[in-house]
């Protein structure tokens, strides 16, 4: 009695697994057809880079506002923001970014006469070559596109927040509404259509420059070849791809 039942059970199991296998094979064969390899190879020609000229930034926050609207960023999170650094004559430093500077800045933090050096630093995802967030994503939802943009697959992301912890630049956040991690995409939907990212499009001072690092004629390449620039937290080995002109030692 027992033996027969068990045999039946095993048989059933085998049949069902075979069925599942066949089904899955069928499903897979279907998918293989609509591959767009050309697209992949076309993208390999690009390596999107970002350059921020901090000496030109006026801290107006137009980039932050444009980004919010473009990407429907939740209220209290930011894909890009502007920081202000103010150093007074005694060497005190104050850094602030009220609401990510979405409404710009209202007043100087020190007495205006006391400030010896002050500047704005726009921040955004660095789209690192060796990004910590891509490394730590447990499900392969964060990935690097062939054109070297770090993106999130919102269909796969489980929202564990490990990438948020791993990003040394504080560029990531969990979108609680969608339950997934999110961050700057360099406006991937725009750059694929030949447009500049929303923040670059909105910048009234051309402080943000965007372009293809693989193209020797691109503006970003030309500037990078001519001028001295820095990266954020280079010691962490993330190899960030957002370059800053006029970076101060205080900026982290």
């Amino acid at each position: 009695m027992n033996k027969i039942e068990r045999r039946k059970f095993i048989k059933l199991g085998l049949y069902s697994t075979a069925g599942v296998l066949c089904g899955s094979l069928f499903a897979f064969s279907k998918i293989e057809q609509d591959a767009n390899v050309d697209n992949y190879e076309a993208l390999l020609k690009f390596d999107w880079g970002f350059l921020v000229d901090t000496t030109r930034c006026i801290g107006c926050g137009a980039c932050v506002r444009a980004c919010k609207i473009e990407n429907n960023v939740p209220e209290s999170y930011f894909r890009t923001w502007v920081e202000r650094y103010e150093i007074d004559k005694n060497g005190n430093i104050r850094v602030d970014s009220p609401k990510g500077a979405i409404e710009s800045f209202k007043t100087d933090n020190f007495q205006s006469e006391d400030i010896v050096k002050a500047f704005f630093v726009p921040k955004l995802c660095n789209h690192c070559y060796d990004s910590a967030c891509t490394q730590v994503c447990p499900v392969g939802a964060t990935y690097e596109t062939p054109d070297k943009v770090v993106l999130i697959d919102k269909e796969r992301c489980v929202g564990c927040g490990y990438c948020v912890q791993a990003c040394p630049y504080g560029c990531r956040y969990i979108d609680h509404e969608k339950g997934v991690a999110d961050k700057c995409t360099l406006c991937y939907h725009r750059i694929q259509k030949g447009e500049a990212p929303a923040c670059v499009n909105a910048c009234p001072r051309s402080a943000r420059i965007f372009g293809n690092l693989k193209d020797p004629k691109s503006k970003i390449r030309r500037i990078l070849d001519q001028r001295r620039y820095g990266q954020l937290k280079p010691d962490l080995g993330t190899n960030p791809k957002c370059f800053y002109i006029g970076l101060d030692k205080e900026v982290v």
């Binding site: 992949y40 444009a66 392969g140 990935y143 939907h189 725009r190």
Partner: peptide, 26 residues
Amino acid sequence: ESFGKYGHYRWNANNENASLKMVNQN
């Protein structure tokens, strides 16, 4: 589908990300 085609990610996600609507006008 399309997972692991060109790396450890879903290749179709790239198209999804690329096909979002543009908001800010040039």
